[in-house]
Amino acid sequence: MFLRWSYVRFLFGLRHMGTTWQVGDGREQALADYVCAHARRNDIDDVIRAIDEFCYTKSYLINIGDEKGKILDRAVAAAHPHRLLELGTYCGYSALRIARVMPADAVLYSIEFNPANAAVARRIWDHAGIGERIVVLVGTLGDGGKTLSALRDEHEFAPGTIDFVFLDHEKDEYLPDLRRILDQAWLHAGSVVVADNVKYPGVPGYRAFMRRHESAHWRTREHRTHAEYQKIIKDLVLESTFLG
């Protein structure tokens, strides 16, 4: 994986990635083109397969990937959530995995910083036939209240209404955004928060927070795994249940 040109190009694009959440070589749009050309329409399993195929054989992408995706699948299935919040849509891969296993009447709200990424995700979701089950909002929870207000006023987020949260966005915002959610009292006892990339690239403050509050306000499982689309770099996915 480290010798693949797409990964080398990704490393050169890290500065661009940090400001726009795109690598800068068009691979995100190329993914949508590939999915529409190589995956069966209205077949979510085949769309997920096509994305994994693209990431292994064409261009490396920073979605959760197939190995860690199974951890996410199990967490969603166990939680039986009806209102879900995702921070970090990127190209829509994790949302596909979530939608595949969440209850039929559930709705996933996905927050994405980059409108171009949101457009790629919408195109892929529509091809998979699940676009009506996912609401994407362009913004961040830290944008001065705009996105928080939209969730409250337009989408009826209220105390105790979020059953599941998936964190896979700017790593420095994991803990601040969790605190914003807690300040809104949107979680209830039993709500589940899953966080990707806790070891690589790493979110030590978030991990320390969960360890500090273990058994008092949270109960956390640490899943030892690997960073996406390779077996060399180790990673952690945290699955935390809110105790109230």
Results as ranks from 00 to 15, higher is better:
6 S>M: 03
6 S>L: 03
11 L>S: 13
16 H>I: 12
18 G>E: 03
22 Q>N: 04
23 V>L: 14
27 R>M: 07
38 H>P: 05
39 A>C: 04
40 R>S: 13
41 R>D: 14
46 D>W: 15
47 V>K: 02
53 E>G: 11
58 K>H: 06
59 S>T: 12
68 K>C: 03
73 D>Y: 14
74 R>Q: 15
74 R>V: 11
75 A>D: 02
78 A>R: 01
79 A>D: 01
80 H>G: 10
80 H>P: 00
83 R>T: 11
84 L>W: 06
85 L>K: 09
88 G>Q: 07
90 Y>M: 01
93 Y>N: 12
95 A>D: 09
98 I>R: 07
100 R>G: 10
100 R>I: 09
101 V>A: 02
102 M>Y: 15
103 P>G: 07
105 D>V: 00
112 E>M: 03
120 V>R: 03
121 A>K: 05
121 A>F: 05
122 R>F: 01
136 V>N: 09
136 V>C: 14
140 T>A: 15
147 T>H: 05
147 T>L: 10
147 T>R: 02
159 P>G: 04
161 T>K: 13
163 D>V: 12
170 E>V: 04
172 D>Y: 09
174 Y>C: 01
174 Y>G: 01
176 P>T: 08
183 D>M: 05
184 Q>R: 14
184 Q>G: 01
186 W>Y: 08
189 A>W: 06
195 A>C: 13
199 K>P: 00
200 Y>P: 00
205 G>K: 10
205 G>N: 13
207 R>M: 05
214 E>P: 01
215 S>R: 13
217 H>A: 08
221 R>C: 08
221 R>Y: 15
223 H>N: 15
227 A>G: 11
227 A>M: 15
234 K>V: 07
235 D>S: 03
237 V>Q: 00
244 G>E: 09
